[in-house]
């Protein structure tokens, strides 16, 4: 629940990872809407994290921000471990 499964390193403590940003989930397409008119979803948050305390891989993490549960973790950038 509060371990992230790094595709290279396996399940690691949350403190090894650094949060970078949350992706916009709203319908807006323009830069203004994506930056300033963001709608937060209480159940699902798409985020970019980096495994700074390990392999420094960039990860796309899908999380439930209300419970903290991690739903999915994949590598960014289409690289394969």
């Amino acid at each position: 629940m509060t371990r992230l499964q790094c595709p290279f390193c396996g399940p690691r403590e949350l403190r090894e990872f650094q949060f970078h940003k949350t992706l916009p989930t709203g319908p807006g397409g323009s830069a203004y809407e994506r930056t300033y008119e963001r709608v937060a979803d209480a159940e699902r948050s798409l985020e970019h994290w980096q495994h700074v305390g390990g392999c420094r891989a960039w990860l796309h993490v899908e999380r439930n921000p209300s419970t903290g549960a991690v739903l999915a973790v994949v590598l960014l950038g289409g690289m394969r471990p």
Binding site: H20, Q50, W58, G78
Partner: peptide, 14 residues
Amino acid sequence: LAHFEHYRATEFAG
């Protein structure tokens, strides 16, 4: 460094 790496992994992936 994180800023550069992030865009390399997203907009410039592959």
